[in-house]
Every structure is written in structure tokens, then in C-alpha cells.
């Protein structure tokens, strides 16, 4: 596992234009599953984390994103050669587009830019009730709002009470609750489903 200083140094160099490929190879992957250093926590519990940002992408200049935070703040997020990207599945930097929503974690640089180690594009994690089941869609309700969930052949998986994920969705039931990890289709009430966790 890398240390926070290692990550800061690597991301700094990457954000400054040295894409960091040599450094990344020398220090290991910055993929999300390996990037969580057990360092002293900052910020305090209950407070905003300056190394995290969320919002809608309103502009992109090469690998610099302009993001309008949901609280109104503007963020500049630098994608680098070591940034991991998730958009329904692990993917590449070019899939990050204006209009997308995102969560980003990285290192806040002295100029206020967030050098991203991970971005999750359009990701949602919803506790829903299943209102109907079609061949390729699930009709869902989330906090009183209707959400259409699209099943993606070869990708969408179901987890039944902690069992290994399977592609068979036939044991989902109308009227039951579920938790859905998926990717929002911007500007709509629709999502593509990555994983659905079925309730009892």
C-alpha cells in the first residue's frame, strides 16, 4: 500500500504533466482498491473533505474538468495518467463527458485543483423498491421518485443475500426492496444497472 506522501508526490507530478507512468510503475497501482492509505485522518468527523469533490461536469479542457458542485461551489479536477475511472465499469479518461455527474477523490493542490486518483462517473447507490420487472428493465421507486433501471447484458449482476454475484435476475420480486449500484443517464430518471442486491 502506498503512503499518503507517496500518493501526493505521485499525483503532484502527474498533475504537473509528468504523466507519472514510470512513477506509477515503481510505486504500484493507484487503483481504488489499493489506494486507501491508513494515514492520520483529515478532516475532522462531520466536516467536508477537501480531497473529495462531487457535482456535475460543466466543462472539459483536455484533462481538466470544471465541475459545478451540488452546493454551488466550483471545482477544477485534473485527470492524470494514474487516475482510475469508473463509469458503469472501469473505463478510460475519454469516457468522462460534459453533463456527467461525478464523485472524485484525490489530492488538493496548492492552486486549488484536485488531482484525481479516482473518479466515479454517474455512479448511484440507491435503496429502492421494485415496482415492476420487464425483459430488460426494472421499474424502481426511490424516495417516492420513479427510476427506470436498464439491465445490461453481460454486465448486470444480482446478489441474493450475500451469495456470489450472478447474471440471473429471475429471483428478483416485485414489491421487494433492493439496493442498486448503477450509472445514471444524465438528465433523466434512468440508470444502467451494475449490481442489484436483493433484500429478503
Amino acid at each position: 500500500m502506498t503512503t499518503t506522501m507517496d500518493r501526493r508526490s505521485l499525483l503532484t507530478r502527474a498533475a504537473l504533466g509528468a504523466t507519472g507512468l514510470v512513477a506509477a510503475g515503481a510505486m504500484g497501482s493507484l487503483a481504488p482498491e489499493t489506494a486507501f492509505a491508513a494515514a492520520t485522518q483529515y478532516p475532522e468527523p462531520g466536516q467536508p473533505d477537501p480531497n473529495f469533490a462531487e457535482g456535475l461536469i460543466i466543462g472539459r479542457n483536455q484533462d481538466l474538468l470544471q465541475v459545478q458542485g451540488s452546493d454551488g461551489r466550483l471545482h477544477r479536477i485534473q485527470l492524470t495518467g494514474v487516475t482510475s475511472v469508473w463509469k458503469l465499469r472501469p473505463t478510460t479518461l475519454d469516457q468522462v463527458r460534459v453533463g456527467d455527474g461525478l464523485y472524485a477523490r484525490g489530492v488538493l493542490m496548492p492552486d486549488g485543483t484536485l488531482a484525481a486518483e479516482s473518479v466515479w462517473v454517474n455512479i448511484v447507490n440507491l435503496t429502492v423498491s421494485i415496482t415492476s420487472i420487464g425483459r430488460s428493465t426494472l421499474q424502481l421507486e426511490h424516495h417516492g421518485q420513479k427510476v427506470v433501471g436498464y439491465v445490461q447484458p453481460g454486465l448486470t449482476a444480482a446478489v441474493y443475500n450475500g451469495t456470489p454475484a450472478v447474471s440471473d435476475l429471475s429471483m428478483l420480486k416485485v414489491g421487494r426492496h433492493a439496493q442498486v449500484i448503477g450509472a445514471w443517464r444524465p438528465g433523466t430518471n434512468e440508470i444502467d444497472i451494475a449490481t442489484v442486491y436483493a433484500s429478503n
Binding site: Q41, P43, E44, P45, G46, Q47, P48, D49, F52, A53, E54, G55, L56, G69, S70, D71, G72, G101, Y103, N122, V124, N125, L126, T127, H142, H143, G144, Q145, V147, Q179, W184, P186, N189, I191
Partner: peptide, 28 residues
């Protein structure tokens, strides 16, 4: 697991600030 709260985009926009009235996705 994780959940979104406070001002938010997409389907999360309907979630509100939680039972304590202070919840924000960007806070610890």
C-alpha cells in the same frame, strides 16, 4: 455501504439532509 444526502445530482437529488438535518455527501 454508502448513501448520498444533501444537495446532489441525479436520483440523489431527492434524498434530503437526513434525520439530523446536517447530512452532506461531501462530509465525513
Amino acid at each position: 455501504s454508502w448513501f448520498c444526502c444533501g444537495n446532489a445530482w441525479g436520483p440523489c437529488a431527492s434524498t434530503g439532509r437526513g434525520a439530523c438535518g446536517t447530512c452532506h455527501s461531501g462530509n465525513f
